[in-house]
């Protein structure tokens, strides 16, 4: 029995907890991409850079707060700076919409043209971020590190395996749950949210019903930029902030959005977790796990790792490609693609 408990804790520690945290971050990012896709009807390649930008502003404000001794120990100072990061990122995306995207929206350009436009925005934003803060690796987390450390857990339970839960992991899961809850309440029960859904379903009919397109678009950018900043800051708290890594995040995020069915908010969340769990579980070595659950003489050698950790990053693309072959409209999509 003890062995099974150990094996369970092992999986929890190395697979379930990290993958849940990562899944939350991806889900928040994918929600933003999905929202823009359904309301504005294009794939926004600049979303990763928007996350990067939001995180950068939060980091700059965090430094300022730290310099003035304003912290909220035991929580990370970045959480105090988050609202400022969100505000600036929202302003930036509204400015981008006003000066870049709006022209193409009014012209009713092809979605592919908007995609290429978003690549231009991506280049400008990534240059901006790298120009302002450089390309180095930066840490955001200055709060208490562990809610429970591996040693504490071992002492508490008497098991051989420890379960370490970091404060940033709890914060990520809690903030993601709250913001997703708020978003769904907003989309289902407020007048504005309903207007957004109506607009996503049929732009012209929504217009005929007196819904203001400009207002819907503005709210969409506000929500998407907020989600992007949140996702970026949570990722940065959990790991670290590095512009190069954030630029690459756009692919797992797109994978998550497509796996769940592009334009479907529930799908984006499910997709985020599918991608995160596959990435962590496929590259995890199950050797120790099997040493607990199998009799010793049954255990052949080898790492029991499906894919080398070098390919951690490629997992999400492989999922993406498999979904595109098997079910291009995504697993939870009701709309035709």
């Amino acid at each position: 029995m003890q062995d099974y408990a150990n094996a369970f804790v092992l999986l929890l520690n190395y697979v379930v907890v990290p993958a849940t945290t990562y899944g939350c971050q991806l889900a928040l990012g994918a929600l933003g991409v999905s929202l823009i896709f359904s309301v504005l009807r294009f794939s926004n390649f600049a979303h990763g850079e928007l996350m990067s930008f939001g995180t950068m502003i939060t980091l700059l404000v965090t430094w300022w707060l730290q310099a003035h001794g304003l912290t909220i120990q035991p929580l990370a100072t970045a959480l105090l700076a988050l609202p400022a990061g969100v505000l600036v990122t929202v302003l930036l995306s509204l400015a981008t919409d006003r000066f870049v995207y709006r022209y193409y929206r009014i012209k009713r350009s092809d979605p592919i043209v908007l995609l290429i436009v978003s690549i231009g925005v991506m280049l400008v934003m990534s240059g901006l971020v790298r120009f302002i803060i450089g390309t180095d690796d930066r840490t955001l987390d200055d709060g208490v590190r562990f809610v429970i450390s591996a040693k504490q857990f071992r002492d508490l339970t008497g098991l051989q395996e420890g379960l370490a839960i970091r404060a940033t992991q709890i914060i990520t899961i809690a903030l993601a749950a709250v913001s997703v809850g708020l978003l769904f309440w907003f989309l289902r029960h407020t007048k504005t949210g309903k207007a957004m859904r109506a607009f996503a379903d049929n732009e012209d009919l929504a217009g005929l019903s007196g819904i203001s397109a400009q207002r819907v678009v503005t709210i969409t950018w506000v929500v998407a930029a907020t989600l992007a900043t949140l996702a970026g800051v949570l990722y940065g708290l959990d790991k670290s902030f590095r512009p190069f890594v954030y630029q690459q995040l756009v692919l797992p995020i797109f994978a998550a959005a497509i796996v769940g069915g592009f334009g479907n908010p529930v799908g984006a969340i499910v997709g985020g977790f599918i991608v995160a769990f596959s990435e962590v579980a496929l590259t995890y070595s199950f050797k120790r796990f099997f040493s607990y659950v199998l009799p010793a003489d049954w255990l052949p050698d080898g790492l029991y790792q499906l894919i080398s950790t070098d390919y951690k990053y490629a997992v999400s693309f492989v999922i993406l490609v498999v979904v595109l072959i098997v079910r291009p409209s995504g697993f939870l999509n009701t709309r035709s693609s």
């Binding site: 294009f42 794939s43 979605p111 592919i112 995609l115 692919l251 797109f254 497509i258 592009f262 993406l320 595109l324 291009p328 693609s337």
Partner: peptide, 8 residues
């Protein structure tokens, strides 16, 4: 597939 998917 639609163009976006090819791009991604």
């Amino acid at each position: 597939l639609r163009g976006d998917y090819l791009a991604i």
